[in-house]
Design a binder for these strands. Structure first.
Lengths: 336, 336
DNA sequence: CTGAAAGCGCTTACAG
DNA sequence: CTGAAAGCGCTTACAG
């Protein structure tokens, strides 16, 4: 009733375990007769190699752990991070890795330790990062890469988008279409991407002679739809009196949250106010009006993280740091 | 440089591996002195048990495979299925399981075989299902549960929503608010949930004397936003001439796709047309106007699937089939 | 071309 | 309370 092992195959074929192993792996010689017999039995008995036993001897599990750290739900199904995970899954399958997905509200030792005990070959760290956990993992000697982490860490491969360039694109698009008074909702500034997006935006504005005061920056504690809605509703009077003709939020969730509020106040978008987000989550194109935004190549981020990690795992020489991904402006109905 | 093993701990503590093992597991006796020494070394050397070796002897990996079968992207980040995955992840962590997530465009032996080779303790099958793969898994003797599968299978634990009841709720809500001419977009009828949602809807209509012809059913080949948009745009003339005052789609993606088109045609929602979806994905409440829909308890579906599977794995006696989850109507801005 | 042996890192009776 | 031995299912030199 139990699943057959190499031992059982060997017994029935009248050969040794070694021979069966060699035939399965294709390493070493074997006679055609032995091969036929063994392969036939494998087929017949539906033999499936035990990956656990293999991992035991090869010291490689061919498993990768994805650690996704985020404070708010959703986590794995997050419209931005979820897409990265989707890409990771696909690329990993292509390279014959299985993926453990682990989510956590904070970057803790716990999840990382668990993955180490499972003896994954490597780790992909996404979003919130903390130095001590990074050190902990490094200490264990486990290869890892980071994806869109909250901060860069020296000597660590970090796959990111050119967020500062994206911020500039937004400013350029808005100023070129005649906007000067822009209301900005800035996501958590302790996260690299939100920080750089804002920075790129402001730099461009300044360089083009737009007064600092004309861009009213409102800090968002989280990067959620609810927060976007909340901030604009609290600032609604200031918004109206300020003569703003455009709104930029450092991600799509904040932008659509704000847009929802504006639409409920019967503000015409883009006739009265233009809105720009950042990320290009699926949902951005579905909204009415659809959202102008900066497309981040999440697909490439996920795929690249697996390819990079695979190189580290196989200890390929001269692995150079991947270049930052270039985003692009997607103009939709929410701006004019 | 390598990570310490039980053997190294034993050597340094001057005891045998057996003793170390017993101290770690807490099974069997050990002297306080030995315990102090060993525990101290474990702390000092940052010993982490090798889960692979443990799995080898215990014949249990404490890993669960989630197989998510869907034709279209996104898969893991799908607004409906992704939420189930999120719940699975959380509940699994609580019960000390790690989760392999595997996505596939079709239900194939390949992904399932791979998980079997990894010797997962059990499998959670989501969405598209096919009898032969089910048989294949059963044959291997691996416990599994299904979640929102395309079809029921005898004797298999299947966690589902009461979709027929949900369909009835939609019909009831629309007829009570005075609608008689309803345009229906029905997702793939070879999938259990879409089929039952439509069935429940139609049954209620018929029982309440609404003419069959008044509910124009349009079949959707997929259950995507693009398809919803496409169908209503193709039927736009028929829709206008038909005097429809409401639209029901068997999931939120189709509904929002259709809604997007209607809004682009300057149709007032809900003043001229009411729209109802099904699922209550996050995005439904964010849309403008926000979507009236039937909330499926995806969170409970995911959590329950893990709990059920855990019982099967532990061979708990008398595991009874969970009852179907009751959905509820969420009235938002898209209906009146 | 093939088999016996050792070993991957643990756990679990068993004997003392 | 403790240690030696066997074994989980494989792979990999090594000897023949």
């Amino acid at each position: 009733m139990d699943n057959p092992t190499i031992k059982e195959i060997a017994r029935r074929a009248g050969v040794s375990k070694s021979t069966v192993s060699r035939i399965i792996s294709g390493n070493g010689y074997s006679s055609p007769e032995a091969r036929d017999k063994v392969l036939g039995l494998i087929e017949e008995m539906q033999y499936k190699p035990n990956a656990v036993a293999r991992a035991m001897v090869s010291q490689r599990t061919h498993n990768i752990g994805v650690l996704l750290y985020r404070r708010e739900h959703p986590i794995a199904s997050h419209p931005f991070y979820g897409k990265i995970v989707d890409a990771v899954l696909l690329e990993a399958a292509r390279l014959n890795y299985s993926i453990f997905v682990t989510t956590d509200h904070d970057m803790s030792y716990r999840s990382a330790d668990f993955m180490m005990e499972k003896r994954v070959d490597g780790l992909i760290l996404i979003s919130r990062l903390q130095q001590n956990v990074i050190d902990h993992i490094t200490n264990f000697g486990l290869p890892f890469v980071m994806v869109n982490g909250s901060t860069d860490v020296d000597g660590v491969i970090h796959i990111v988008n050119q967020d500062e360039a994206g911020g500039r694109m937004v400013a350029e698009h808005l100023t070129r279409t005649g906007h000067e008074r822009i209301f900005v909702i800035a996501g958590p500034q302790n996260h690299r991407s939100h920080h750089l997006r804002l920075k790129g935006f402001m730099t461009y504005m300044r360089q083009n002679g737009i007064q600092e005061a004309d861009a009213a920056i409102h800090a968002a504690a989280t990067s959620t739809f609810a927060e976007g809605y909340e901030i604009i509703s609290r600032q609604w009077n200031a918004f109206r009196e300020g003569g703003y003709t455009a709104l930029f939020a450092t991600n799509d969730m904040l932008a659509t949250g704000a847009m929802k509020f504006l639409l409920e106040q019967a503000v015409l978008i883009p006739e009265q106010v233009s809105v720009v987000g950042f990320d290009d989550v699926d949902f951005a194109g579905m909204f009415s009006p659809s959202l102008t935004t900066i497309r981040v190549d999440t697909w490439e981020m996920g795929a690249q993280s697996v390819r990079m990690l695979d190189k580290l795992i196989r200890q390929e020489p001269n692995v150079n740091h991947p270049s930052e991904l270039m985003p692009r402006l997607i103009v939709r109905q929410s701006t004019k």
